[in-house]
Design a protein around this nucleic acid. Structure first.
Lengths: 151, 151
DNA sequence: GCAATTTATATTGCACGCAATATAATTGTG
DNA sequence: CACAATTATATTGCGTGCAATATAAATTGC
């Protein structure tokens, strides 16, 4: 096993690890703010989608958030139990489940308004780095989508 | 609620989401390769650390990987059950648990040699973008560490 | 028009991640 | 040296993520 081989397996040589660790840390940083809304981080993502476009089917949520029904179904049931969303079978296609906002779910948007700003402030990332990093991550997402399709 | 407020809550405006989604997708992409080694992705990260520096205490692993004992303890027990690592209380400080590699755990490093290259190939990210993105993510990690310390 | 296939969601099982708490060993303080 | 405070790890509980499988509705092929 040469030195070069060793280097490839070093934690610091990986791209995956800072991605994984930053994602975990960022989610942790959201928690105190989201606790006030009674949401977890993935629940917050679902609400972001619904605040933009409700109703949405489970499949639409799945496609936008890259999560499958095994994750979304129980998550949506918890949002429903919290009184934030409704779930009902589509009339046209009985396979589909349409998720819509309750008045309480819509009202929660007001409480969420300050979260992006507060998080941006807490992180302290400059506007340019913010846009640049987001852009690079979108590029990576595109490549990962292609790579995943090849399997 | 103004249009500008709405925009701040759009999924596409977030930095957190592509980070979260890319991390999930990348972990999913690792799975078929790691399955051959019988490792999950976080178990792979632990092995990366140990292949560089064994033995390591739970606390050292925790610090390097940004994971707490609630995650590491059961994970290490599974690695131990798989015969890849040993766990034993430190002689000098009985609070600490030293994690070391078994011969089987060390031998697994050979099988892992090709993983970084194979993943790089699958993703198809250019060397420059790879280094650039990794560098930006490290910068973000630094900021997130500071932000987390302030809470 | 009906059987085979495809599609949409649900269920099951397992391994995280992490907050909160518990336990035990060490260190600091008088 | 006793004893409070700190430190290292373990445990508990809950909510993901996701592969594998199940179920039921819609679509396709003949």
């Amino acid at each position: 096993m040469s030195k070069k081989d060793d280097q490839a397996l070093q934690l610091d040589a990986q791209l995956c690890f800072p991605l994984y660790a930053a994602s975990n840390l960022l989610t942790r940083l959201y928690r105190p703010l989201l606790d006030e809304l009674g949401l977890t981080y993935p629940q917050y993502l679902v609400m972001l989608v619904l605040w933009e476009q409700a109703p949405a089917s489970v499949g639409e949520l799945s496609q936008k958030l890259y999560l499958d029904s095994g994750t979304l179904t129980p998550l949506l049931k918890r949002l429903e139990a919290a009184g934030l969303v409704r779930r009902r079978r589509s009339a046209e296609d009985e396979r589909r489940v349409e998720v819509s906002l309750t008045p309480k779910g819509l009202a929660l948007k007001k409480q969420a308004q300050d979260i992006p700003g507060a998080m941006g402030c807490r992180i302290g990332l400059g506007a340019e780095e913010f846009v640049s990093l987001r852009s690079e991550l979108r590029g990576l997402m595109h490549l990962l989508g292609e790579a995943h399709a090849k399997i």
